Amino acid sequence: MKMPTFRAMRSAKVMAVVAVAAGAIVASAIPGSADVSTQSPSLGGVRVESPAVLQAGGAAILVPVTAVCAPGTYAYIHVRVTQRVGNALATGVGDSRIPDCTGGFQTFKVPVHASGKPFRKGAAFASANLNGPFPGPVEDHREIQIAN
């Protein structure tokens, strides 16, 4: 097997640098008028906020959720909350629809009805899913506080 010489390696490096420089020149000469936002797929975002607020003595909570989705579209928010209450769990789910996405951050209060035990003031774990006309569901999971 023949080993490359120093001269061959040096010329390969020079060719690589020349190729990168030529690519940069060509890229800068091409008009940059394309709007990236119209070519990129629309994505959504969701975040569970804190605190959730007790309703009807713990029968439900209102969970604030901030979402973002492409303007002129719609989305669905699904929230699940679990809280340890003594030796048992208070759990619940709730849904909300975003009929008109604005493309900006929008905050919604999603009602979550308790199942099993009632919710109480304190720490809980919440998960939110955002579904809509964008690739796959978007999720957020975090500890939240439940307040009066």
Rank of each mutant, 00 (worst) to 15 (best):
F125Y: 13
A52H: 00
V53M: 12
Q106P: 05
S37W: 06
I146D: 02
G86D: 09
G116V: 11
A67K: 01
I61F: 06
V20D: 02
L43D: 06
V36R: 05
A21P: 00
V63Q: 06
H141T: 09
F125G: 03
A147E: 07
G44Q: 08
A114D: 03
F105Q: 06
P51R: 10
A128V: 14
N129T: 15
N148F: 01
Q39L: 15
P51Q: 09
A60I: 01
V17W: 03
E143W: 07
G44V: 08
V65D: 05
R97I: 15
D140W: 08
P111T: 14
I146F: 03
I144C: 07
P118F: 10
A67C: 08
Q83F: 04
D100E: 10
V53P: 02
F125D: 10
T82V: 14
S50V: 04
V26K: 08
A8V: 14
R142G: 06
P99D: 09
V112Q: 02
R7N: 07
L43H: 12
Q39R: 14
I77V: 13
I98M: 13
A19F: 08
A126E: 02
V18D: 07
V79I: 06
F105N: 11
V93K: 07
Y74H: 02
M3H: 11
A90P: 13
A147L: 06
K117A: 13
P135K: 02
V85F: 10
A67Y: 08
V65W: 10
T91M: 02
R7Q: 12
G58S: 04
A90V: 12
G45Y: 14
G116W: 05
K117L: 14
S42W: 05
A114K: 02
G57D: 10
P41M: 11
R7P: 00
V14C: 01
K109S: 14
T5L: 04
V85Y: 07
V112C: 00
R142A: 15
E139Y: 15
T82Q: 09
G57C: 01
V63R: 00
P31V: 12
Q39M: 15
